[in-house]
Structures are given as C-alpha cells and as structure tokens.
Amino acid sequence: MSQPARTTSTRTSTARTSTARTSTARTSTARTSTARTATARTAPRPTGPVHVPRTSPPRRTGPVPAPGPQLRLVPPARTTPTRTPPRARRATRRRAPFVVLLVALLVATTLGLLLLNTAIAVDSLQATQQREANAEQAEEVARLEQQVVAADTAAELARAATAAGLVPPGAAAHLVLQPDGTSVLLGTATPAPAPSTPGN
C-alpha cells in the first residue's frame, strides 16, 4: 500500500502543482490549498490520482499529449454511451405506452373539461331562460291576482251586485223554535224593494 502511494504521489505532485497553479489564476486560493493539503494528507490513497483526470480537469489534460495513461482512462466514458443504447431501447419500449397514456390522459382531460364547460354554459343559459320565463309567469300571476283582489272587494261586489239587479236585504225575520215545540216569529219579514235599475 505504501510503495505505490509514494510513486504516484511524486508523479501527480508535478501534475498537480501545474494544475494547482493554473487553477489559482483562474479560481481561488482555496482550491489550491485544498489540493495541496489533499495531496499531502491523502497521499496514501491509491484512488486519488485515478480520479483526478476523470472528473474535474479533462479539458486541461485533454490538449496535453504527454500523459498517455490519463487518456486511456477516457474510454470508459466512451464505453458508457455504447452501453446505453440497448438500455434506452428497452426504456423507450417501456416508456412508449406510458407516454401514450399520458397523452391520452391529457387529451381526455382537455376534452372532458371542454365538455363540462360547455355543459355548464348550456345549463346556465337554460337557467337564465327559465328564470326569465319564471319571472314573466310570476308577473302574469301577479296581474291576474290583482284583478281577483280588485273584483273581490266589498265595494266592487256591491257595485257588481247592483249592476246585476240585486238589492240589499231588508230586515230579516227569525222563526225561533221554543223548547216546548212552538215557534215564535221575531221581527217582520219585509220583501226586498224592487231594484231601481233592473239588471240585464
């Protein structure tokens, strides 16, 4: 563990110092400091140098032709896209019904909303028409009731009765039965006077 760690540390130290310096110019001192301390502290780690070219500085190392092994490390990145097509094909096969379902749902929702909105609008229109008709009917009823009430008053009845040739009654006589079975005539029945203006 300790031997390979040393050798790699010397190699990478050169490479890193260069990257570290360029990076100071670009970014900040913080990175370089961490890089340096990282090399010092994490020197025993074997994975340290392997990871560096992969992740952060592929651009920087890219143009440089000298480090061969670092370039070799790139292919794994190439291999991953070659692996993905079968996965994607499988995924597309799996996704296809899902997408169709989604689209169908969307279309159905849109259509449903449209239908519902139309239905509501139609109902609302009908309700308005019904309400108007109702109001008209109510007005008509009110008018008719008005006629009934006006014709039902005592004064109007008296007028109509007079017009029909009726006369107000005179004094009424009462034939009252007594407990012993006899009857007593109370009051004098007088025939109603002939109407002054005979009715139709």
Binding site: T14, A15, T17, S18, R21, T22, T24, A25, V64, A66
Partner: peptide, 19 residues
Amino acid sequence: GRATGPSGRGDLRPRREPG
C-alpha cells in the same frame, strides 16, 4: 505547448505568463 510539448515540466512556465 508546441515547443515544450514532450517535456513534462517545461510547460509550466508559459502557463504562468498568461496568468
């Protein structure tokens, strides 16, 4: 880079200059 391409350490200087 072209001039000092093969040597690993020589390319440090030009990089400093632009910096």
